[in-house]
Design a protein around this nucleic acid. Sequence first.
DNA 1: CACACTTACGATATTCGTAAGGATT
DNA 2: AATCCTTACGAATATCGTAAGTGTG
Lengths: 307, 307
Amino acid sequence: MNLSSRHLRAFVVLSELRNFTKASEKCHLSQPAFSALIQQLESGVNARLFHRDTRNVQLTPEGQLFAESAERLLRDMDNVLENISDHVERRKGRVALAALPSLCAGWLPGVLGEFRARYPGIDISLTDTLSDQCIDIVRSGKGDLALASSPPHQGDLSTQLLCSDGFHLVCHKDHPLALQKSISPKDLVRHPFIHMSRSSSVRQHLEALLHPLQMNTVLEVAQLATVMGMVEGNVGISVVPALTLFHFERPNIVTRPLIAPGLKREIYIITRAGESLSVAAQALMDLVIQRRPQEPRAPRRRTSRQR
Amino acid sequence: MNLSSRHLRAFVVLSELRNFTKASEKCHLSQPAFSALIQQLESGVNARLFHRDTRNVQLTPEGQLFAESAERLLRDMDNVLENISDHVERRKGRVALAALPSLCAGWLPGVLGEFRARYPGIDISLTDTLSDQCIDIVRSGKGDLALASSPPHQGDLSTQLLCSDGFHLVCHKDHPLALQKSISPKDLVRHPFIHMSRSSSVRQHLEALLHPLQMNTVLEVAQLATVMGMVEGNVGISVVPALTLFHFERPNIVTRPLIAPGLKREIYIITRAGESLSVAAQALMDLVIQRRPQEPRAPRRRTSRQR
DNA sequence: CACACTTACGATATTCGTAAGGATT
DNA sequence: AATCCTTACGAATATCGTAAGTGTG
């Protein structure tokens, strides 16, 4: 038989009210239609569930048996539907996001704060790690979304440009390059240079751009904060993406845009291809796109003016 | 929404086969009809549950969420329906019967044996007790059926004649009354008489019949087996219903029909009025009626011929 | 005769299967 | 071209509400 929630609800209501007329009203049905519904249920289970007397309605023994389960079944059904609804309405859920550390420190906190405020029931898992690992997290299913620089990606991932990010020289205010308004790549050669680790996207971009010229590397560090400290101590110069310039807003450091054709770090939203995002993940993705980092102009001007 | 077992089954099948065409066949539906069913489910929960690609079908995150519950829900539903079906088909169940001791020893065992053989899954509870208590057991809901002599009953009980049972003299073969072919009530007076307890139906019938004559009571016992022993020892005579004569089929005891207009013990099937019996109880009642004790002739002849 | 459930019946909605459409490999 | 899901559409089915029927206190 085809047992539906309508049947269960009708049964439960009737077993409580023990009156077809009142029960039919509660179910927003005419009394004969309600009667037919109960009869259909009874023929479906092949048993009389209610004993009808001209004056009284009451459960038969089989009806009592059914009643024990029917209420539980109905509650279960309602819970399942409500649970789905909670997820669809974004009252519940979970998103696992992986993003580049440079995004996680400066731009992402505001976005996640807004997301949490808007959807307090959705839990967020954030992994701040380098691009390749971000991508692996998504590919392996451990994460829903990655914000990373795209590698030569296979077809199992879907990639969408979020923003592109210019590079800036950062150096001590007393450094000779601080006198130039803007910088070209070959200006960097020979000055003692502080690199990020070889796997960072910044370094890969720079080396590709200057090739075959060699740079004068004095240090290779993992954290941008270390770069900042070294630059402030005039140990060397470095180049960082615009989105990380907030680290370098300090009295003794100046920043200058690095001008070169095509010198851009592109940041992509990466998801698994051929799968759909959960409502929660989609909501986060929508917000990420809506609040995506502004194109170069605004941050550049602001950082060079401040302090 | 109206969530039905058809929806759940379609969902579960599709989530396993991940192919509309094959799933539709398994559900005995055309593929478009199946597709519509899934769409209806999706619009009911207000979420896409399957991601359709021209080549692949797979669960969305919400679909996975639903899948966790859907299978359980479907299994629950099926279990409930199967449980009801087991009861309706008399594979499971319970009947509580209360019956007069005189029925429980001689006639009932064969009936219950047949019942158990036919419906091995149905448990029987039997209370062998006096008529009033049998009736109370049914009235209070502790029992489904009673086989008892009907008292002046109220309207809350429904009464149906099962059989009527003549009375027989039982006495020692050397007793003077053993010479008579049949006995009339006044033949009993003055002979030392062994009574059952005052509340037994036999005694109530006898006293009503002989009133205002007094009997010569020598003993008042509770068990028929005691009556038998005393009669066999020629301590006295007694009168018992035909259905209990099997107790008295012994070499030194003779039994003689007691002839008197209207002297019959009537045995009724008693149930609660305005309620329906469980399938199991109805089955027992049907069998009880089908195998009801034969009208006087046969047992009388047989008992008087034997031994 | 008033009440409460069932049956009868025509109107409306739903569901079905066939056939056509669209997208992808 | 073959596969697979969706859309279109007329036919069959189910469900609805109104009205009449039935049985009981």
